[in-house]
Design a protein around this nucleic acid. Structure first.
Length: 265
DNA sequence: AAAATCATCAACCGCGATCGC
DNA sequence: TGCGATCGCGGTTGATGATTT
């Protein structure tokens, strides 16, 4: 027997819910509960199928739903649980009070999956550099945006000598068209690729055991300060640059050596 | 300023599991 | 025990707003 799709019934409404429908559903469930989803819409005076009502209640109208952005802790939890459970969204949602499986699934596909892919790529980069350069710690800075108005673009050298693996130059490209670059080491050979950057802007990152110093002076309107140091394990962490003119960038710091270390700017 | 593209998220669909007669 | 009805889950779609070209 082939079962008809639940919403195929004639005259049943589909698509976004109106506030009136929400009100009907909520007040019915508050009075009578939701014993039988199939029968509920008729009893509540809704022209919806039971499935649609259930979904609306579970994902949006339940009183214990937590709205708003996911916190960093919640995102961490999702990543960890997904590692353990895979795409079992309802099981993951059970560990996050107030969050629905649908919401978690969405945030996974729109944010977390991409972030993990980025991290994976970075790890591969780190690994490949480790093979080429040995284990001496060094930094690669890669910008990540602090807001959606900033995008990042990496520029690689066409040369393939092993030293070029240190020449990570990254462009912070703002929506207003202005480009800013930070490079982790002085690589004169790359500068022709980025003619729009004034020499005075370059910031040199110098290694001093486990610390990094930003040595040069930036143009006055781009003076910046650095957030307090964080401790990093091997892999990546985040740091931020706060420019006096209001710009604020976050960027990743990758540590290639196996040493746990603390970075100071 | 308009068109194209991208990102987000609510809602839908299909299927397997479970319920209950 | 069998079978239809219902539930719940995960995958997918599509409307909408934001951003880029």
């Amino acid at each position: 027997m082939v079962r008809a799709p639940c919403c195929e019934k004639m005259g049943l409404k589909r698509g976004p819910w109106t506030p009136e429908e929400d009100h009907l559903l909520v007040s019915y469930i508050q009075k009578h509960g939701h014993g039988n989803w199939r029968a509920l819409p008729k009893q509540a005076g809704l022209l919806r199928c039971g499935k649609s009502c259930r979904l609306r209640w579970i994902n949006y109208l339940r009183p214990d739903i937590k709205r708003g952005n996911f916190t960093a802790e919640e995102e961490e939890t999702i990543i960890k649980l997904h590692e353990m459970l895979g795409n079992r969204w309802s099981a993951i949602a059970a560990k996050l009070p107030g969050r629905t499986d649908n919401e978690i699934k969405n945030v996974w596909h729109t944010h977390l999956k991409k972030r993990l892919q980025k991290t994976k790529q970075a790890d591969q980069l780190i690994n490949s550099e480790t093979k080429t350069r040995g284990s001496k710690p060094h930094l690669i800075k890669r910008s990540v945006s602090s807001s959606s108005t900033v995008t990042t673009q990496s520029v690689s050298s066409s040369s393939t000598s092993s030293s070029d693996l240190l020449s990570s130059v990254f462009t912070l490209r703002e929506s207003n068209g202005m480009n800013m670059c930070i490079k982790s080491e002085d690589m004169d050979s790359l500068e022709p690729i980025l003619p729009q950057i004034e020499e005075s802007f370059w910031s040199e990152a110098a290694m001093d055991d486990n610390s990094i110093a930003m040595n040069n002076e930036l143009p006055a309107h781009h003076q910046c300060s650095f957030e307090p140091v964080e401790s990093f394990q091997q892999g990546c962490g985040y740091n931020s640059i706060n420019f006096d003119d209001g710009m604020d960038f976050w960027y990743d710091v990758f540590i290639r050596s196996g040493d746990s270390t603390e970075l100071t700017f």
